[in-house]
Design a binder for these strands. Structure first.
Lengths: 138, 138
DNA sequence: TGAGGAACTAACAATAGTGTAAGTATGGCA
DNA sequence: TGCCATACTTACACTATTGTTAGTTCCTCA
C-alpha cells in the first residue's frame, strides 16, 4: 500500500509464501480493510467514485483511492473515465472478481455459525460446501 | 496482535465493519501471515509446537506463539498440554476450523486461474462453486 | 474572474503487524 | 551442581497499513 521494502524479512517471508501457496496469493488481494465493501457494492453493477464512497460510508478519499488502485492492478476491477465536466469515473468488477462470490457466501455462512459456537450455541452442521462442476484438472 | 488502541479510528472502523459484515469477521480470523500455514499443517491431525514450527519453516517462536494464541482464542484450535518432561504441547484444529477447508480449496482454484489471467492466458471458466446441501435458513 | 464539483494526490502522522535476540520455567539425568 | 530440551515470554526494533489535512486539476457556468 505504501512503499514496500523489498528485502525486509517481512516482505521476503510474504513473497516466499505467496510463491508457493495460491491460497495466500488470493487472500492477499482480497484482505484489506475496504476491499470487501468494494466487492459488495460493485457486484450489482458499476458505480462512480463518489457513489461508492457514500455507500461505504466511513472510508476516506485516500483510502478508497488506494484500495481501488490496488484492485485495478490486481485485475479485480476496471476503471473507466468519462471526460465529462466534472469528470465521471466508474468502477466495474472484472468477471474474475465476480467469481469470488461463492467465497463471500461461504464465509458469511461459516462466520455466522462460528459466532454462534463462540456464544455457546451449538448450531446445525454447515449446510454449504464446495462442489466441483467437473473434475479439476491439475 | 500487539496492544490495540480501542478508540483509534482504525480500530473503530474495523469493529464497525465486523459487527455488520460476517464475511469480514471470518476474514479477520484467518488472514494473518502464518495462520493459513497452521491450518494446512494441522488439518491432517494434531502436532506439537516444535514440529509445527519446523514444518512451517521460516516462522519464529514468537510469531508462531502469537498466531496460535489468537487462533485458540478464536475457537479455531485447541491447545493440549501433557505434563511430561520436557513438556509436550499439542495443537488440534476444532471442527469449526476444519469446515473452512472448502474455502482453501476454492481460493486455490480461483487463485491459480486468476494468475493465468494476469499472465495473459485466458483459462477455462472456474469449475467449482458453492453448493447448498439444503436451503439456507439465514 | 472566480466559484464549484468530481476525483484525485502529497505530505505527514498514527496504529497495527511482524521480526530479533535474549531470557525464563520445569524437572530429569549425568 | 549444572546442563538439557520444550515451549514459551519479554523487551525492543522495524515495516506496513490506515487515517488526516490540505491541496490540485479540469472545465463550466454565473
Amino acid at each position: 500500500m505504501a512503499r514496500i521494502k523489498k528485502n525486509s524479512t517481512n516482505n521476503i517471508n510474504k513473497e516466499k509464501i505467496m510463491a508457493t501457496c495460491t491460497e495466500t496469493y488470493a487472500m492477499d488481494m482480497i484482505g484489506a480493510r475496504w476491499k470487501l465493501a468494494v466487492f459488495y457494492h460493485l457486484k450489482t453493477g458499476p458505480l462512480r467514485f463518489s457513489v461508492l464512497k457514500e455507500k461505504i460510508g466511513d472510508v476516506s478519499d485516500r483510502m478508497l483511492t488506494l484500495h481501488l488502485r490496488e484492485m485495478e492492478e490486481d485485475g479485480l476491477l476496471i476503471r473507466n473515465v468519462y471526460p465529462e465536466v466534472p469528470v465521471r469515473v466508474e468502477y466495474t468488477l472484472t468477471s474474475s472478481a465476480m467469481e469470488l462470490q461463492p467465497v463471500w457466501d461461504f464465509l458469511r455462512a461459516w462466520g455466522r455459525r462460528h459466532q454462534n459456537i463462540m456464544n455457546g450455541v451449538e448450531p446445525a452442521p454447515l449446510d454449504m460446501t464446495i462442489a466441483y462442476k467437473q473434475p479439476l484438472a491439475s
